[in-house]
Design a protein around this nucleic acid. Structure first.
Lengths: 136, 136
DNA sequence: CTTGACCCTGTAGTCGACTACAGGGTCTAG
DNA sequence: CTAGACCCTGTAGTCGACTACAGGGTCAAG
């Protein structure tokens, strides 16, 4: 388990080499050192950091937000309150998106319900009618 | 209410001139004719079509899907079934996104609940702990 | 000592829905 | 007749998260 080259790390983390270099550009990861030829060399612990990134992504955090979380995570003096605040902002954001989607779903379901489907032409389609602004 | 130039139409529809030209590139709208100087001239009824586009967007349809809806809408021989199918596919899509967001929200809420906030440092933050893969 | 797998940098493309010019031509009010 | 508001085409930039080269250099196996 000595330093990993970027290709080995990519395989371990199930990410592409390009993605790793992209994360480096964003400041999310960095190689521990470079070889004489300029090759990136990573310590094996970086795999954990990449898992952190993936988990946070799955929870809806952007890479920019993940950079903040990683910075807080690396600072033992930082307050957990900041992490909590980021988390609660993300929850609020997600809840807003859910509400928007639910409004759409209800509107669409209401329209689909009254559409006779294959028994009618588009002329009598209430969905198109609504989009055209018929009634209200 | 004679032919509208693109600037007048933009004002009526509360869209930018650039957006209108963009919609034209996508095939969503077209000027009825061109003036001698090459100016786009729209019949006033185009405003309805733009409202259709905006309503469909608010319901979650992409501009590509809206192009399909408009094509169906303009073809009186087309079946309302196709419109209904597009609508139901969109409902399914939205429901999937809601489910994904709800899973995120619940995971985040569960983490936030156990975070002591400002009373602890990031070392003891269960949110960062979870992202780092502690437990499970 | 060569072949092929790896690595480097830097740039550009993808998706969707715009937005912003640059470098022209046209139209209208005073 | 001219200033300024309008219009044209064509190209490029924005956001986020990648993805895909091109044109090099490096390394290990046979």
């Amino acid at each position: 388990m000595h330093p990993l080259t970027i290709g080995k790390l990519a395989k371990q983390a199930d990410l592409s080499v390009e993605t790793l270099r992209y994360y480096e550009r964003l400041g999310l990861i960095a190689p521990q050192q470079r070889s004489e030829a300029g090759y990136r060399l990573y310590e094996p612990g970086i795999v954990r950091r990449l898992r952190f990134i993936r988990r946070a992504q799955a929870l809806g955090f952007s890479l920019g937000e993940i950079a903040e979380l990683l910075a807080l995570s690396g600072d033992p003096a930082a307050s957990a309150g900041e992490v909590k605040a980021l988390t609660q902002a993300k929850i609020a954001d997600i809840e807003q998106r859910i509400r928007d989607l639910e409004r759409m779903r209800e509107a669409l379901a209401g329209l689909a319900e009254h559409c006779p489907g294959h028994r009618a032409t588009t002329v009598d389609c209430p969905i198109l009618g609504a989009l055209n602004g018929e009634d209200q």
